[in-house]
């Protein structure tokens, strides 16, 4: 089936079996391997993407469900070589170790900050509680998200 959707700001049309998992469509067909697969069962969050402003798990979405949607993957955040403040904060704050959870974490945090610009630590921890990380103990991820929020708030003032 021919599926049309907006992917990282670009309209795309792709011919795919409708019941193909979105994670496979992105990784194998569209070469967007930044969306990781860690469990295939919705339990780790590595495949988190943003669909119409909401985080979803690409391992539990079928290709057909993307029809007409605005989809953002990790590859869609960088614009003209400029990283988002959140990505910068992840680097500066040491939030990245093996990095396999990072794309899902960044997108989850992006969706959080879009809704809650200055989240508390508890809100941050709750927001990323569906994204498992085995390397960091989450602390530097939480700190980096807070750093990005505060930097942005500082700029707004």
């Amino acid at each position: 089936m021919l599926i049309k959707f907006n992917l990282n700001g670009q309209d795309v049309e792709v011919e795919t079996p409708p019941a193909r998992r979105a994670v496979d469509l992105l990784r194998e067909e569209l070469n967007l391997t930044g969306t990781k697969e860690g469990c295939g069962a919705g339990e780790c969050g590595a495949c988190t993407i943003i669909v119409d402003g909401t985080t979803k798990l690409a391992c539990l979405l079928l290709a057909a469900q993307l029809e007409g949607c605005r989809v953002t993957t990790i590859e869609g955040l960088e614009h003209e070589n400029e990283l988002t403040p959140l990505q910068e904060a992840f680097i500066a704050g040491g939030a990245i170790q093996c990095g396999f959870c990072t794309p899902g974490m960044v997108l989850t945090a992006q969706a959080l900050l879009a809704k809650t610009p200055l989240p508390t630590e508890a809100e941050i921890r709750s927001a990323i509680s569906g994204n498992l990380c085995r390397c960091t103990g989450y602390q530097k991820i939480v700190e980096s998200i807070r750093l990005a929020a505060h930097r942005r708030a500082g700029e707004l003032q």
């Binding site: 969050g45 539990l60 569906g130």
Partner: peptide, 9 residues
């Protein structure tokens, strides 16, 4: 219930 992503879906 679940996680934020699960609740979204």
């Amino acid at each position: 219930l679940g996680s934020p992503h699960i609740r979204n879906m």
